[in-house]
């Protein structure tokens, strides 16, 4: 197995393909040349910065620095999970709920994988911890976002049914159960689809990357399976925590539906 090192010229050559996109945009008058250029430049700048940060991080191997980077990543994931929702909890809960669920699920699953399966030395080694957390985080964020979007988006539409149950003396857990179930299902659909299609529809990026880097494909497949299970576990925990906590905030201790705690519909 060999690892082929890339030069900047190789990358520049690949970037020439963008001229095809630009040409297409000009020919068809799509008006996307500017967006395309900005997106490409952003990608190059962001990845270069990430590369430099990771290089410095890997050289240091400090638990505090690793933890700080992980927290920043989780903070961004929490923001992204709630940013595009039609309705969300008002006040600090809006951002806090999704972020706390992601924080809980992703750190738990990442720490589990680092301490029991991968076991690098030290266990918090950023070379393993950060990419692993990133992969779990990306999927968990999507799941939490979809789950909460369903929960808060449909609560208003289902109000009559939920309040009919509450008015008849059902508990808030009973009244919100159909909505909670649907919301958890929504949050889990992407990862279930992704697991079912892996290897048939698409070769996962991490596995492909390892193979390109010269790793034995069987080893790369094992890593990919491990990652998929961690992602599925992390997403399930994150979605469940977020939706159950969200449903708790959507009701109160007197078993009332509290739509007033949601932001107005966008």
């Amino acid at each position: 197995m060999t690892f082929v090192e890339l030069t900047y010229w190789d990358i520049a050559l690949a970037a020439l393909l963008l001229t095809v996109n630009a040409g297409l945009s000009i020919w068809l008058r799509l008006g996307m040349e500017r967006q395309l250029a900005i997106a490409a430049i952003r990608m190059v700048v962001q990845l270069t910065l990430v590369g430099l940060v990771l290089k410095a991080l890997f050289a240091t191997v400090s638990p505090w620095l690793t933890g700080a980077v992980a927290l920043v990543m989780i903070g961004f994931a929490g923001y992204e999970a709630t940013a595009r929702q039609a309705r969300r909890l008002s006040g600090p809960w809006g951002y806090g709920l999704g972020t706390m669920a992601i924080l809980f699920a992703c750190t738990l699953v990442t720490a589990f994988a680092l301490t029991t399966q991968i076991q690098p030395d030290p266990w918090y080694s950023p070379q393993f911890a950060i990419p692993l957390l990133g992969m779990i985080l990306g999927n968990c964020m999507t799941g939490v976002s979809l789950g909460l979007n369903q929960l808060f988006g449909r609560a208003g539409k289902e109000r009559l049914a939920i309040e009919a149950m509450l008015a008849l003396g059902y508990t808030r857990q009973e009244a919100l159960k159909p909505l909670v179930r649907e919301s958890v299902r929504s949050g889990l659909i992407p990862i279930v689809n992704s697991m079912a299609a892996t290897g048939l529809v698409a070769l996962p990026g991490m596995m492909t990357g390892q193979i390109l880097a010269g790793v034995d494909p069987v080893q790369a497949v094992k890593y990919q399976m491990l990652i998929m299970f961690l992602i599925a576990g992390g997403t399930a925990i994150g979605v469940l925590v977020a939706v159950v906590a969200g449903s708790g905030r959507l009701s109160d201790e007197r078993h009332r539906l509290r739509l007033d705690r949601l932001t107005p519909i966008k």
Binding site: A161, E163, M165, G169
Partner: peptide, 19 residues
């Protein structure tokens, strides 16, 4: 407890909900 209260003092909305 609130559920017990609502079984004793039951509200029926003008537009009933079904679940």
């Amino acid at each position: 407890p609130a559920p017990q209260w609502r079984r004793l003092v039951t509200y029926l909305s003008a537009t009933p909900g079904w679940w």
